[in-house]
Design a protein around this nucleic acid. Sequence first.
DNA 1: CAGACTTCCGTCGATTTCCGGCAAAAGTAT
DNA 2: ATACTTTTGCCGGAAATCGACGGAAGTCTG
Lengths: 394, 394
Amino acid sequence: MSTTTLPTSTPGTSAGALLHLVRTRQAETRGDLSRVTGLSRSSVASRLASLVDAGLLLEGEELASTGGRPAGGLQLNPDANVVLGVAVGRSRSQVGVFDLAGREVSGDTRDHEPGISPEKLMPDVVERLGTLLAGVTAPVAGIGMSLPGTVDPVRLTSVDAPVVRGWDGVPLEPWLRKVTDAPLHLDNDTSVLTRSELFGRVPAAQTMLVLKASTGLAMGLVADGRLVGAGRGHTGELGHTRVEAAGDLPCRCGATGCLETLAGGWALVARLQEQGVEARHIRDLVQLALDGEPQARRLLREAGRHIGEVLSVAANLLHPEAVIVGGDMGGAFDLFVAGLRESLYANGHPGATRALRFLPSTHGEAAGLHGCAALAIDAALAPEAVDARLRGRA
Amino acid sequence: MSTTTLPTSTPGTSAGALLHLVRTRQAETRGDLSRVTGLSRSSVASRLASLVDAGLLLEGEELASTGGRPAGGLQLNPDANVVLGVAVGRSRSQVGVFDLAGREVSGDTRDHEPGISPEKLMPDVVERLGTLLAGVTAPVAGIGMSLPGTVDPVRLTSVDAPVVRGWDGVPLEPWLRKVTDAPLHLDNDTSVLTRSELFGRVPAAQTMLVLKASTGLAMGLVADGRLVGAGRGHTGELGHTRVEAAGDLPCRCGATGCLETLAGGWALVARLQEQGVEARHIRDLVQLALDGEPQARRLLREAGRHIGEVLSVAANLLHPEAVIVGGDMGGAFDLFVAGLRESLYANGHPGATRALRFLPSTHGEAAGLHGCAALAIDAALAPEAVDARLRGRA
DNA sequence: CAGACTTCCGTCGATTTCCGGCAAAAGTAT
DNA sequence: ATACTTTTGCCGGAAATCGACGGAAGTCTG
């Protein structure tokens, strides 16, 4: 007999762990919990009672019977708290209020001048959050925020954000303290995008590449069901990988030959403009492509091809089961993926690409914002955090 | 305050978990264990008593005092069991007996005809293991075995081993049952090499790339302190990534343009032969390079450069803290790494390569075999396995 | 060098937690 | 209607855990 490695998570048997199993759909009845954890029914019941007392758990309606008394369904009380999401991009910011199930209660997206300073944007964010929270009675359990570039998740500042100048080293917490005292969590934009694919359910695949193809190019990594590099504040730099085809084209990063100069959103827009087609942002280009504009369609497909070349290296290394296509280019999914497929199948090792699926990001344009919420919710409902909360209440 | 993600492992508080903490040097006194797990001294003591009873734990001599009574050191009893390692390569097989600390008790390395069949090799392996076990009294706790290519760790067979023909689908367990009834664990050769770097200590880095550069080229991945894709039976295909510089050189895999055609051991040897220098194996070439043969030196450094190009993609994606250089080419560490450095610093993103260290594999030529032992030991001493063992005894 | 102080270790009773059986509840099949 | 299945709450016995206490083994100080 061979002992294979842990198939599912065994994160403990505390009340918080039970809630985690319930909200990740690994168990939805008392019986399930007892089986999964090895705990007796009575122990499960007593823990669940604490959770219900704390208002975190709902005993939903009964499930379909399997021949006897139907089990009472268990589910997280999504309205026990709300969390706030703040996704800041180069030229757009999104804020939202979410329930604990990750559903958006209310939200607000605004464009701003590219590379806006924190001193200009943050007061605006604070005001918008205040407005969204006006009618909300549930307490705020946390804030999840994302920035492009590298962040310091401990000091809660940007570290190296090439596309939004003036943010590096600026502490963000003071602004958000005006909204709530709940803990702030900061991560990279691609990292939260990846989180949005993992949140609150059995993920599409245990190992997957989560591509963010917008103005810049980046990639998040899920290996064995978990986000690689979680909490380190950066993600895969895809855009500044040297590719032969880029020759010595100058990149916005200062180097030459970067993938971005061929396939980054800013480069595609520049190409399109050179050809006399009006477009200011990669979103415009994607829209044109969807409308059938031939140059835009060609550029997007080519971008997919170039990105796929670099992706194929990652695919060879990791043998992912799925590639999630996020970012603005994901808006023209079929077209873009056709390009990706071409070079992935051409360059990838057969074993690595045989079972590869391509999927659009679950939350589309709001994926990053949903990921911010996921960041805050996962922290607030982490088993240890829940246990601490119950201890405080008891 | 921000809640950062788990810095160290909290795998539980069972006796097995305590042993795990001790043998991974995360704790070496009762006080440490109490602090790390949150358990009271008495609970720790009772668990440790079971472990001592079972012969798994030794109460070593006292440690240096910190101002009061010195703590009694705890350590795994390395002689409670032995494990067997079997590392099969294309033209060489290594077997060994190891204690639970991963030290080689005895071992045996033999060359064989390239691509030997299991029907010819396995009886030989069985016989050699029998010889090595002759004077051993400790019971065998497991066998760890590695093969090149992709394996099925559940069915315990090779799945796709391009370099050793005739192994695919052949069950290996029956042969080894002649040696012992202890569980057999099978994994890929690069995977066990990576395990050898993680075994029984705080690893050199939490995120690292473990390169295996021999006849073929592959890479294992450690992210956040754990082996990525553990138990899936394959590792990163580095060798069959398309690189521009390879043009349409034919690869042994059937495709063209693979990195291996430029930098794989077999290709380097072929080049050297073309230039009239005698060499049959990459190990010969490495030895020539160490002796100062200029062509061999040039080829190795160039190989490093080519491999570094592909590695830089991985480095950009993962921001590793270290690159471990294993495989035969690691024998000429300085030379080979000089090549790696060149292209990693040229092609890598500054943030990704700033703090990058290059380290030789800890166990050199025997790294794979040590990794096989690590595979078996980690399985035998996994917290759950230890707990089960204690239950059986009680 | 003796005594105070610090740190570590084993034991033991009180308390908390946990398990498993029992009976009732709520459905489904016959 | 009756037998069967599955779930659930309850309760007493069993087991594990905690924290305190006393002793042991060093270091530090006067």
